[in-house]
Design a protein around this nucleic acid. Structure first.
Length: 496
RNA sequence: GGCGCCAUAGUCUAUCGGUUAGGACGCCGCCCUUUCAAGGCGGAGAGACGGGUUCAAUUCCCGUUGGCGCUACCA
């Protein structure tokens, strides 16, 4: 009995990952099995080491522990897919040999034209099978000659695939609606579908518990298990966490980063408890329970399948319960450990030294660095020289562009914010005040870039979001227009 | 558009055909109290709609509507 969580290191650690990890952890432990962590970094373009590092750190912070993983090792490694490409290549080769997959030489242009035609004709968009007919000999020759290709899996033309979901029961999918999925990309790396099936089999995963977004591709996965002659794992698809407006939880509308909740001062046990409440009903109304208790009581078959809204108000209450259960001494220890590590405090003191006249100035002048959200209203921006629309645009551009960066250090922040100034055609001196207000709640504070680095990406994003809301937000039209503006800032001109 | 999943109060949920539809967050009120919280007590608030099946449907079936997901050489 083995389960896993398999995040993709393409962004910040997401609470959805913690949610899936929690279920997998509890279920495995309940059955006396193993829980493992695998990094799915087959997307060369989007995966970053920073992201992987942050995800591991965030998961460790939750307190959940894995029996095997890229950091702790294990008998089924490596646990990072980018280090397993040879394995996938071999299995793709096997499918090719068996005739269960084929090389596809179609160009992106042809595929795009095909889809456009399908759209226009109002028929389902899927690969038209153009390259299935290429004879094996010719296919091998063209590949050998260096022509670029991908490997696609074959799909039966007729019939139905029944996906047995642990909580939903049998779900039928007609093969006619299933696409001939790419298994091996032209860069030689596998897509999720191949890597996932191969790894789950090799790592002896018995229960695949993952997000609901994977349900439509389950037929492909089942087909692959069949092609390889492997026994498929038990499948269970979890409902997706939602924003208050019921859309899929997204950082644009809601804080989604595990690190946000950490920096905001939530205790990991409270976060896990909150997530646990979405997975198992509170016993006799007792809403406060730990992972051990959840492990005992979790019943996958009975999980409520409506996508639950991630209700931060209830999280606040829960976290308060945990905090109140602490003695004053424990509260001090926790608070110190949370935001007052020596290195951080020293750095803040260095910034504050030249700006304080009395010791009694120290706390007020640095308080925003220890706060979650800061008080910002429309009027807070009154002293800036920019017109309201420019303010909204500046905040929105800064937030979006910062999101697109892989790192969040002073140099990055400076480059991006000054870039916004260039895009807007305003002097940074005039613009910076807007950012000061949004980030610190005041036009006068310790240096901006240092402050933002100290605050961290997640808190800054939330403050941008909050400030943007305060000045009226962004319309869909503006969002479309503004996001289309190229990021033209001359990187080289800014000393880093 | 196609395919699929889902549907109890504002939110998270309980109810394995018969209940005054239970609990929690939030909200409102009262109590406690040097303020504010916390805590205690109380209150308002729900089965999307329409058909069936049944002696009896929130519960089972079908349809409608709505929400969500997928529909990439991203996961």
């Amino acid at each position: 009995m083995r389960t896993r969580v398999a995040p993709s290191p393409t962004g910040g650690p997401h609470v959805g990952t913690a949610y899936v990890a929690l279920v997998n952890y509890c279920f495995a432990k309940q059955q006396g099995g193993d829980f493992l962590l695998r990094i799915e970094d087959t997307d060369q373009a989007r995966s970053t080491p920073e992201s992987e590092h942050a995800i591991l750190a965030a998961l460790r912070w939750t307190g959940l522990s894995w029996d095997e993983g890229p950091d702790v090792g294990g008998p089924h490694g490596p646990y990072r897919q980018s280090e397993r490409s040879e394995i996938y290549r071999r299995y793709a080769e096997q499918l090719l040999l068996q005739g269960d997959a084929f090389r596809c030489f179609c160009t992106p242009e042809r595929l795009e034209a095909m889809r456009a035609a399908q759209r226009a004709a109002g028929i389902p968009q899927k690969y038209d099978g153009h390259c299935v007919a290429v004879p094996a000999g010719e296919s091998a020759e063209r590949a050998a000659a260096g022509e670029s290709y991908v490997v696609r899996m074959k799909i039966p033309e007729t019939g139905v695939c029944v996906v047995n979901d642990l909580a939903r029961g049998p779900v039928p999918y007609e093969y006619a609606t299933v696409d001939m999925q790419v298994l091996l990309k032209s860069d030689g790396l596998p897509t999720y579908h191949l890597a996932n099936v191969v790894d789950d089999h090799l790592m002896e995963i018995t229960h695949v518990i993952r997000g609901e977004e994977w349900m439509p591709s389950a037929p492909k996965h089942l087909l692959l298990y069949g092609y390889f002659g492997w026994e498929p794992p038990v499948l269970m698809h979890l409902p997706l966490l939602r924003n208050p407006d019921k859309s899929k939880l997204s950082k644009r509308k809601n804080p989604t980063g595990i690190l946000f909740y950490q920096r905001m001062g939530y205790l990991p046990e409270a976060l896990l408890n909150f997530l646990g409440l979405l997975l198992a009903p509170a016993p006799e109304g007792r809403e406060i329970f730990g992972v051990d208790d959840l492990t005992r009581r979790l019943d996958l078959v009975k999980i409520s399948l409506g996508g639950p809204v991630f209700d931060t108000v209830k999280l606040d209450w829960l976290n308060g319960q945990y905090l109140r259960a602490l003695t004053a001494g424990e509260l001090v220890a926790r608070t110190l450990a949370w935001g007052f590590d020596r290195e951080r405090v020293d750095r803040i003191a260095e910034l504050a030294r030249s700006r304080v006249a009395r010791l009694s100035d120290v706390v007020p002048s640095t308080a925003y660095l220890f706060a979650g959200r800061v008080e910002v209203t429309k009027d807070s921006f009154a002293g800036t020289k920019l017109p309201p629309e420019q303010i909204r645009k500046a905040l929105a551009l800064a937030m979006w562009r910062l999101d697109a960066e892989h790192t969040f250090d002073m140099a990055t922040v400076e480059r991006v914010l000054k870039g916004v100034g260039e895009t807007l055609g305003v002097k940074f001196r005039d613009l910076s005040r807007v950012f000061y207000v949004a980030m610190t709640g005041s036009a006068t504070a310790l240096p901006l870039f240092d402050s933002m680095e100290l605050l961290g990406r997640d808190i800054c994003r939330e403050r941008f979001r909050f400030a943007l809301d305060a000045v009226g937000g962004v319309t869909n039209k503006e969002q479309k227009e503004w996001q289309a503006i190229p990021f033209s800032y001359d990187y080289a001109a800014v000393p880093t």
